[in-house]
């Protein structure tokens, strides 16, 4: 019977993973909409090229790094190396916080150079799109925080692995999304 139960459990987990990817597809569509708007605006002419201050480059490095720590932590969970898992999981969380702080520093830098949120059109797009992305990182951080606390105070549970897997998929996704946006902002289509 236990075999059958596992089978059922796997089916559930598979279904949930499937649902997660549909969820990511909806986020993709959200950004497709917003980036298309930028392209349309660029095509209308009178477009000021976007030059992102160095803070955004640092953010990019940070979030890339956080994907690496997430990867290590997930692997450690699989190998049941509790200590390593916890350290790298929390490292991911801290890097996530650092990313958010850095993005804000980036906005301050923009504002300091006179590119206010209601200023030049092209930078308005930088604000709205990157802040929407930031909100998704924020949601990820809440999940990381919740799971981090849970896995730190409770006994290690190998059955939790698929949850860690879901979280890491989401985290890599917001990471990739940022890399894409970061490049996208600096492209010229017309």
């Amino acid at each position: 019977m236990v075999g059958a139960m596992n089978n059922e459990r796997e089916r559930q987990i598979f279904a949930q993973r499937f649902g997660l990817f549909i969820g990511l597809a909806t986020i993709v569509m959200l950004f497709v909409a917003m980036t298309s708007a930028l392209i349309v605006r660029q095509g209308a002419g009178n477009w000021v090229n976007i030059n992102l201050p160095y803070q955004f480059w640092i953010s990019t490095a940070i979030i890339l790094l956080s994907s690496v720590t997430m990867f290590i932590s997930k692997k450690a969970h699989k190998q049941m190396e509790v200590q390593r898992f916890r350290i790298f999981f929390w490292a991911t969380f801290i890097l996530g916080v650092a990313f958010i702080i850095n993005q804000w520093l980036g906005y301050f830098a923009l504002a300091k150079s006179g590119f206010y949120i209601n200023g030049i059109n092209s930078y308005q797009y930088v604000y709205v799109i990157s802040m929407t992305h930031l909100a998704h990182v924020g949601v990820g951080l809440l999940i990381l925080l919740y799971t981090g606390i849970k896995t730190s105070v409770q006994k290690f549970n190998p059955n939790y692995h698929h949850i860690i897997g879901f979280i890491s998929v989401y985290w890599h996704f917001v990471d990739l999304l940022w890399i894409f946006l970061f490049i996208f902002f600096q492209l010229k289509f017309f």
Partner: peptide, 25 residues
């Protein structure tokens, strides 16, 4: 629904910015 509603959300976010932050999307 999952392919089209996010686009409306995107439109709404830009609209909220225009209304509250003075942007000009």
């Amino acid at each position: 629904g999952v392919l089209s509603f996010p686009v409306l959300l995107g439109a709404a976010i830009l609209l909220i910015f225009d209304r509250t932050l003075g942007t000009s999307f």
